[in-house]
Design a protein around this nucleic acid. Structure first.
Length: 693
DNA sequence: CTAGGGTTAG
């Protein structure tokens, strides 16, 4: 008897899969030791915590236990909380109390974590009272999780109180408190706490880095990074991801290369961060190269890395390759994988496929989240599927109990507005259960601009001037509407108020990758050789296009200026420069991929289409919402319906000097040890093989 | 009758 118990126990120590778990359980049933508390406790720990995605197994295993003890309750609570069921974890605690079990310090360590993930307020306080009741609140582990839980609820005062009542806080408690200040956006408090710390460890420093990068205080973060006595891979990836998530793409890339130079090597987090940079700038070839690297070092079975790779292909407009990565994912696909894939299809305007994929996702038993529904609603609004969109909007609330966020309401406003149902859109806005923010009004304003609806536009604009008076795009949208209607006096008025309030436009930029180097063309500068080259090539192209019969589309140019100057202003949009540069530098047959940070204007669409035709090139242009293809196999795809909403298609007269420039990132030579297309080829072949079999 | 589990950073 005890012999088989010992065997089962040692087996459980090495068990890593659900199959092994089943074997041990079967063995224990056979030996009649399936109710042994030690063994069943270990099996529960395996299914609830150690082996991923086996929480259902843990639940049913728990149901089979005749007399669970506190350890088992704690384990189930922990498992539920870590598997995304914090509410059920809390319910398990009440169940446990119902059976008159006395919780221990472990219970509260897990419960406070669950409380941090639960939306409803005051759960932390209730649990705190419970901990006090059982005399466990002065336990250091409990204190630390308590502070984190209050931090998550952004209850800084309670967190502070809990900290001050701690008699001998250790480094971890101090760290948790510093994190709490950051979480509550109190940078000053975090800094004070940090400087008062009697002992600091590497984690303390890393918390500082994370806090400041998340707050957008890059210079402070950089200074701390340089002052740190020691750095580890977390320090480096914090910087890389921090920059990448805040649009500081050059810095992220710089830190990534520096980390390799310092011999840090890449890890799953830094790779995820840098892949997101590639996705954002549309660095297709670099992405492929990194894909090769990922496969080589074996990170392709790490879900976050694969999702990031998927996103690179999605954002570079290569739906086919995205699909291949998606279909061949080694690990189980997460909600994120499905959502990214759906977003990829939605960006291409493939609404039917988005809806189909959503059906598949449901069939696979994957629970969609809020992001999934954004893609779904986006697809519906762009395909004009009003009824479908409404159905999904209800389904998300009724079937999946997802509270619509402001983005979802935005999608709905867009759904009605884009279809021209402006009064319906307005009605929807007025009846929204949450306060419409500037994005909602801006969506409405965009829809008005699309349909030339002046009256409603003015109202939306009025709301916007209260909510977000500094935002330039609203002024631009409104003045576009006036410009299209030929109301130049009103255009001038908008213009003047912009200047008097000292509002500048978000500078537009476009990136293009040539030979694994990403070139960035920015409005308002023209200092480098590259910019000059692009400029000259563009002039050639424009005259060639004119000969081919091109007439500039200047209808929506911002202000009432001479025709010639209007032409001049649209002819210098950064995407055109990027295209010209690509045309000059890239071999025939390579796809010219351009990424634009804002929206693309009508004239740029026409020009891209013509360049593609005249020079026989495939051009793929992505802006912040959509992928446009011209030429190649996609030549027939016409995506005109999408070129409204352009916040930036007009050259800003505030930036009077006609200076344009290119920003060049240094060649990433030696960036990775395996920058050879050979490896990429292997990756590609492996996909081909799997695909055909 | 005992054994087994935890806190902060990317």
């Amino acid at each position: 008897m005890s012999c088989s118990l010992q065997l089962c126990l040692s087996l459980s120590r090495y068990c890593k899969t659900i199959g092994g778990l089943n074997q041990i359980y079967a063995r224990s049933l056979k030996a009649g030791i399936d109710q042994n508390p030690l063994l069943v406790g270990q099996l529960l720990l395996l299914s609830a915590v150690t082996i991923p995605d086996t929480i259902d197994y843990a639940r049913s295993l728990f149901a089979e236990i005749d007399s669970p003890d506190v350890f088992m309750y704690n384990t189930l609570i922990r498992g539920l909380s870590e598997s995304g069921y914090p509410h059920e974890a809390l319910l398990t605690y009440t169940q446990m109390r119902h059976q008159s079990f006395i919780p221990d310090s472990f219970s509260f360590a897990f419960l406070f974590k669950a409380a941090a993930n639960v939306k409803s307020l005051g759960v932390g306080t209730q649990l705190h009272c419970q901990a006090l009741l059982f005399g466990l609140d002065d336990h250091l582990f409990v204190r630390t999780t308590l502070i984190s839980s209050y931090a998550e609820a952004e209850d800084l005062r309670s967190a502070q109180k809990a900290f001050h009542e701690t008699e001998e806080p250790n480094v971890v408690t101090w760290n948790a408190m510093v994190t709490a200040y950051f979480r509550c956006s109190d940078l000053e408090g975090a800094h004070q706490m940090f400087s008062k710390m009697p002992v600091r460890d590497l984690t303390s420093w890393n918390i500082m880095l994370a806090g400041y990068t998340k707050a957008g205080e890059f210079e402070v973060a950089r200074r701390i990074f340089n002052e740190m006595p020691d750095k580890d891979s977390v320090s480096w990836s914090t910087m890389i991801v921090g920059f990448a998530q805040n649009g500081c793409l050059d810095e992220a890339f710089e830190f990534f290369r520096e980390s390799l130079r310092e011999g840090m090597g890449s890890n799953e987090v830094s790779l995820t961060g840098i892949l997101s940079v590639f996705a954002q700038v549309g660095a297709f070839i670099s992405g492929q190269v990194l894909h090769g690297h990922v496969v080589k070092v074996g990170f392709n079975n790490v879900i976050s890395v694969t999702n990031a790779l998927l996103d690179v292909y999605a954002k570079c407009g290569d739906t086919e390759m995205a699909r291949k990565v998606f279909d061949h994912m080694v690990e189980k696909k997460s909600v994120i994988s499905w959502s990214v894939m759906m977003a990829a299809l939605a960006m291409q305007g493939l609404a039917d496929e988005v809806l189909k994929l959503f059906g598949e996702m449901e069939k696979n038993g994957i629970r969609p989240d809020g992001v999934t529904f954004v893609s779904l609603l986006y697809a519906c609004s762009h395909a004009g599927l009003i009824e479908g969109g409404c159905e999904y909007f209800h389904k998300m609330q009724e079937t999946y109990e997802i509270e619509p966020s402001i983005e979802h309401y935005g999608c709905m406003v867009d759904l009605y507005g884009r279809a021209g149902l402006l009064s319906k859109a307005y009605e929807f806005v007025s009846e929204m259960p949450i306060q419409p923010n500037e994005i909602i009004w801006r969506t409405l304003l965009g829809a008005c601009s699309m349909h030339g609806e002046l009256k409603l536009a003015e109202e939306a604009r009025k709301k916007l001037s209260e909510l977000d008076p500094e935002n330039s795009s609203d002024y631009i949208l409104l003045s576009n509407i006036y410009a299209v209607a030929g109301k130049w006096k009103d255009v001038a008025m908008v213009r003047r108020s912009m200047i008097s309030r000292n509002i500048n436009k978000t500078p537009g930029w476009s990136t293009i990758e040539v030979d694994k180097v990403v070139y960035k063309f920015v409005a308002g500068e023209r200092e480098s050789e590259v910019a000059n080259e692009a400029h000259h090539k563009l002039a050639d192209i424009m005259s060639a296009l004119r000969t081919a019969g091109y007439v500039p589309e200047v209808r929506s140019v911002l202000h009432d200026i001479e025709e010639e100057e209007k032409e001049n202003s649209v002819s210098q949009h950064s995407e055109k420069l990027a295209a010209a540069f690509g045309l000059a530098k890239m071999c025939q047959g390579n796809v010219i991929r351009i990424v634009k940070n804002l929206r693309v204007c009508r004239d740029c669409h026409t020009v891209m289409k013509l360049i593609s035709k005249v020079y026989d090139r495939e051009i793929l242009l992505r802006d912040r919402r959509r992928v446009f293809c011209k030429g190649g196999c996609n030549y027939e795809v016409d995506t005109w319906e999408d070129c409204e909403y352009n916040e930036m298609c007009h050259k800003d007269s505030v930036l009077k000097d006609h200076q344009w420039s290119a920003y060049i990132d240094h060649a990433p030579g030696g960036m990775l040890p395996c920058l050879h297309s050979r490896i990429w080829l292997q990756v590609w072949n492996s996909y081909q093989d799997k695909g055909s079999s």
